[in-house]
């Protein structure tokens, strides 16, 4: 009887050890890789307003976006890590009981640098390699967050018999971070800065614009 009890205790102890070991390992991983919730300033990306209009057969976009970095992201920028801001715009044709079909997709990548000597924030359009310098991060973010008259596509690609809508979002592209930071950033919530899709319908009349979400 005593032997049975000892055996039971022993086996329970082994199972308990295994489970505890796994739990401790999991906690160590979470702790090591900043996966536990941390009470720091959280960043936020938001498309606050956007509209489209047609000028000379082209669909143009005006949009205002709020981009606020988290403490970790801002710290990385201050320490010379270039950040890539991604602005995605998609034109979708609506379909009944079916997934909307993408008509046009536009992806704009902007790289934000900080130069410590001159205390300048530089915004680089990766596609055009145009550079813009700002003497404060707020100015740079304000410029990045403001789109005026950006040409999206030719109106001719759209037909009047279908309904179309545009959706837009902005995010921090962690895949272009330095290699050492990329893996950690992918697992940390502080680095996951992405606005929800901002959606509005396209009005195909000239200078007639929509502004809805």
């Amino acid at each position: 009887m005593i032997k049975q009890r000892q055996s039971k205790l022993h086996s329970n102890g082994v199972l308990f050890t295994i489970v505890t070991m796994l739990l401790v390992l999991s906690l160590i991983f979470l702790f090591l890789f900043n996966l536990l919730p941390v009470f720091t300033t959280q960043g936020e990306f938001q498309v606050s307003s956007a509209k489209s209009y047609i000028v000379k057969e082209h669909i143009l976009i005006d949009a205002d976006m709020n981009m606020k970095f988290s403490e970790e992201v801002a710290e990385a920028l201050e320490n010379g890590i270039p950040l890539t801001i991604k602005v995605e715009v998609q034109v979708l044709r609506e379909r009944f009981l079916w997934r909307d079909r993408m008509v046009k997709e536009s992806l704009q990548l902007f790289e934000l640098h900080y130069h410590p000597l001159t205390d300048i924030h530089e915004v680089v359009n990766i596609a055009t390699e145009e550079r813009y310098s700002f003497h404060s991060r707020q100015d740079a973010m304000a410029v990045l967050g403001t789109i005026r008259g950006a040409v999206l596509m030719n109106k001719k690609r759209l037909t009047k018999i279908h309904q179309y809508h545009i959706r837009m979002r902005t995010s921090l592209d962690i895949s272009r971070l330095p290699l050492a930071l990329r893996q950690i950033a992918s697992l940390s919530s502080s680095w996951h800065l992405e606005s929800p899709w901002f959606v509005w319908a396209i009005a195909l009349n000239d200078r007639d614009n929509g502004d809805s979400q």
């Binding site: 010379g80 000597l117 893996q183 950690i184 950033a185």
Partner: peptide
């Protein structure tokens, strides 16, 4: 000077994520 400083600072900053990344892989 600016480039060297910037690169060094980014390296210093990346030290922790680099360690974490290696530790994660090893773990």
């Amino acid at each position: 000077v600016q480039q060297a400083y910037s690169e060094y600072k980014s390296l210093v900053y990346l030290r922790k994520p680099l360690k974490t990344s290696f530790t994660l892989t090893l773990s």
